[in-house]
Design a protein around this nucleic acid. Sequence first.
DNA 1: AAGATAATTAATCAAACGATTAAAAATAAT
DNA 2: ATTATTTTTAATCGTTTGATTAATTATCTT
Lengths: 214, 214
Amino acid sequence: MKSEQKIEKNASTEEKIKEAARVVFTRKGYAATRTRDIAEESGYNLALINYYFRSKEKLFDIIMVEHLHLFMQSIAGIVNDRSTTLFEKLEIIVAHYIDMLIANPGLPLFILNEINADPDKLISKVGIGEMAHGELYIITQWKEMAAANNAQLVNPLHIFMNLISLTIFPFVACLLIRNRTGISEENFNALMLERKKLIPMWVKTIIMSSMQQT
Amino acid sequence: MKSEQKIEKNASTEEKIKEAARVVFTRKGYAATRTRDIAEESGYNLALINYYFRSKEKLFDIIMVEHLHLFMQSIAGIVNDRSTTLFEKLEIIVAHYIDMLIANPGLPLFILNEINADPDKLISKVGIGEMAHGELYIITQWKEMAAANNAQLVNPLHIFMNLISLTIFPFVACLLIRNRTGISEENFNALMLERKKLIPMWVKTIIMSSMQQT
DNA sequence: AAGATAATTAATCAAACGATTAAAAATAAT
DNA sequence: ATTATTTTTAATCGTTTGATTAATTATCTT
């Protein structure tokens, strides 16, 4: 019979290995990561990785699911919130993502890269498709706004792409930008924090300008 | 003595291998690519790859340099062009990049990923630092505009990041976007072509709004 | 045509890698 | 304390991988 202590001990080293895997996988990607790297990073023997997780791929899948969850997390709640306006939602989403990305700068490039490496895997193994069952409330709000201005707004897909592009891409290109401009990590993060206020403003401006035009 | 024919023949198969390497490296990245994949893609024997290029890494470096060159190409000319206005430059840059990215959709993710895999390599082996020796003319134009409106514009780095984010990111997240929205490759490309006109407009709007505010 | 050089391949090597095994160390159960 | 169970390690196995070698085929020179 398993005691509490035993379980906690296992969970501890198992968690350490998972944390090490998270670090190495995120930095180097699946293919470039050797199980020996994870062992070294965790401080444990190589064989322990296969003792707790059956294989490199199984361990990777766990990390991947956690990362995807972190990425999609709470967004469903925000975009379906009945108590916030459309523009308030933009502010909340951007602020939420920038905070998360400052804490996990390597996340988006990791995810995007692995999606390209095996596009079907995420569709089959990881169900990222159940974000919304009905129509998202934010979509309803968008349509209402479009109707109120009886104008055909620009394709909402453009607005969506703009939002995630402005928010996420600087982190994807972080090293490139910092290398080109020579700014430090602190200054870069300060710039990103500035964008928490700027991006919703910009996106709002873009939406407004597309309405005035028609 | 080498004849014309011999050189052409070599260049032909050498080019075929390079093209195969370009395809496989761009799709799978350096670590996930096996020299046998390149051999299979090219239709030649494995040993030929090391016959023409000395190693996998040497071949990769060649592809990488070509990709970086394609990416930086002609931008130096555009941003230093004395005959175009600042906003005309925006239009030209965006149009140039979107055309290039539709032709090479995998390029940005490949470059960004390999930069993260080995940040020092690009600084040491590949000299992407010699784009401008003096101050870029586009910077001068920016300062002139700021002075003319005697307003402290938003940090130009933000504008620069916005420009490349809006332009490049949709291609980086192409598979993710297409999977989430279900649109076809043709429709996606059509959207991107729309953005050739939209992005400069949006960026211009963002710049203008930042001036009016102060 | 004959010989020399270059291009291409099959076979193979050594190192790296993911995974397994068997033994040792640590912890729990009696 | 002794046994049983779990955790951790060292050693190793079988494959894969980048690279080389030696032999074969094709091409060029004369």
